[in-house]
Design a binder for these strands. Structure first.
Lengths: 350, 350
DNA sequence: CCATGAGTAGCAAGCGCTTTCTATTGGGGA
DNA sequence: TCCCCAATAGAAAGCGCTTGCTACTCATGG
């Protein structure tokens, strides 16, 4: 039914070994023979059996990319960058590897499932993007999995996630979420804001915690009291920003600024403010995080912290492919840049 | 070095066959034996060898999702929907399949490469999203590949792409881009617009052509002359919308509306108009396509054609999994809905 | 008391490929 | 002229798993 290596060998009148060698391109094969084999491959429409090949060679060309939410450009951009380094610009350079992205939906179970699946496939490398869950058992489980993946020969790279204690072999490209959060709130305080609402991401995520800590650091440094009623948690989506903003307005009508966990949330915040008839930034300033492509098109354009998502992803991809040296200690911090735009200004009703 | 089935068998004092049967859960195994095997698996940290398993069983649990641009939410949303149906809500329901998304960057070569890779892996199903390239040789090559994939037992589903003649077995969920384009321009004409710029996507893509044809249909139906100088082509990105809008304004300052190939392009168009000091929609109306999440947050909110991306992706996923009947003839058309919002209005300088 | 069969477990033959080791060949140097 | 080596092709042994078939064990019914 399906064409096998042996069929090709028969047609080309050579041994299966020779066909394999032609296809793999290591080992010398006489030009004439190669020709004949290639022609047979073509005639028969032969396609290598991946599993058989991986089994025999005990290697695979699979690279897995784990993302929390593939519909979110934050991850899409990183994934795209990783993949471009792995697949190569031409579509198949760099060793003919296949990068696949796995959408975990932020669930540790799915994350684990995918890591196991990748381990099953003996993936050449695994890139895990985005913040981690801080729940101890989960973190341990995932860390252990990553360690075992590394031990089994897969290169593990964390991109935008803090290093995992359990997996010392994994390279980590960590985002400086704390520093970014700090600078953002510093900026707001510098403008004169004192009553600042904070719409955080879901609890138990490192990203959420670090950004929030940066915010609190800034408040503390400026001697601004941190009113816990001004911090709300929610998912990283527009809706959350919208609802939380209304709630913040209810809790503290005198609010002059809202810092959102990310740009998407910030957009929701803007929508809520507009619906309340408040002007941005005259009545309330709004700031986001990440600087996703649409942020500059918001009206007014969003003040945010630009994370070099594409660059970081590309670097992760290169490290995964062994085309770039690992950072010293296996850990590198990627810094964000404060982008001051129209959505923040001096408070009118300070 | 690595733990194999045989090791587990030895430790559990059973034959490898029994271990395999416990793991696969078909075939009856006595509870006590199962227990023992499971314990051994746990003790040894055994992980199934995917390639070996796929080879022996001649099947695989891989499902491939091809997207043109993973950083674009248009594809991210569809991919996310497909994946959620395949992986199941709990993270591993529905037959323990692994959905992987492959980023083709819109390049037919990469598309072909990924299809071959998927064919190598004997993928259970392949979902191809997004418009197709209209270049004949490429279309034929890809169609042929899809046909062969189908013949080899992979379920092939096209989502948001017209049916491929070469691959009659493939199920196609086609977007009604032409109808959507038609309604959008009808709407503009109904408002009184006569000089309408059109910023199309890249040439040679079905999506681009169909949307444009819908636009032209509407013009023709209303007896509005179609000035070819008012149609520009470019990639599906913000920059393209920005540049094209400036060019349109140069070519036809009397323009009262701009229709963009998609929402991202429309955002670029808005930015250009703002930079030129033109008001939306008083000076120029702007319309997009797709209704991506950020479109409602544009100011003014974008008039656009809402494509049920998530629903279509989910359906494609279900069909790929054999959990939903194929549409009659293997083809279904997915219609868009016109969303009239603030970015379009009656022309001031009509 | 034995034939019967339901319930389990094992044997062994591959699945299609890679790769080590072993042949075969044709030249060039001694 | 002969030998030896470089160049190239083949034989065959797995890689780790699945599965059809066989074998065994009891409990049951005749």
């Amino acid at each position: 039914m399906t064409v096998t290596l042996a069929d090709v060998a028969a047609r080309a009148q050579v041994s299966p070994a020779t066909v394999s060698r032609v296809l793999n391109g290591n080992y010398p094969v006489a030009a004439a023979t190669r020709e004949r084999v290639l022609r047979a491959v073509d005639d028969l429409d032969y396609v290598l059996n991946g599993p058989a090949s991986s089994l025999a060679a005990a290697t695979s060309d699979l690279v897995g990319i784990l993302v929390n939410d593939i519909a979110d450009p934050f991850f899409g951009i990183m994934a795209s960058a990783v993949q471009s380094e792995i697949t190569g610009p031409g579509g198949r350079a760099g060793g003919e590897r296949m990068a696949v992205v796995c959408n975990t939906g932020g669930s540790p179970e799915r994350e684990l499932t995918y890591l196991t699946l990748l381990q099953r496939q003996r993936a050449a490398a695994v890139v895990v993007t985005g913040g981690a869950i801080e729940d101890a058992p989960h973190a341990a489980a995932i860390g252990g999995k990553l360690r075992r993946l590394g031990e089994a020969g897969s290169q593990v790279v964390l991109c935008g996630r803090p290093p995992a204690d359990e997996a010392p072999d994994a390279v980590a490209l960590t985002f400086d979420n704390r520093g970014g959060g700090r600078r953002l709130t510093d900026h707001l305080i510098g403008l004169g804001h004192r009553r600042i609402g904070y719409i955080a991401g879901p609890t138990e995520r490192t990203t959420t915690r670090h950004r929030l800590e940066g915010h609190q650091e800034a408040l503390a440094a400026a001697g601004v009291p941190d009113d816990p009623r001004l911090t709300l948690h929610g998912p990283y989506d527009r809706r959350s920003g919208y609802d939380a903003t209304l709630e913040l307005l209810r809790r503290a009508p005198e609010l002059t600024a809202v810092v959102a966990a990310n740009d998407t949330v910030a957009l929701g915040a803007c929508a809520a403010l507009r619906d309340r008839g408040l002007s941005i930034p005259d009545d309330v300033s709004v700031a986001g995080f990440d600087d996703l492509p649409f942020s500059i098109d918001a009206v007014p354009a969003l003040t945010t912290v630009r994370l070099p998502l594409y660059e970081a992803g590309a670097r992760a991809g290169r490290i995964a492919m062994g085309r770039e040296e690992e950072p010293p200690g296996g850990i590198a911090t990627v810094h964000g840049e404060l982008m001051v735009r129209g959505s923040t200004g001096t408070p009118r009703r300070a």
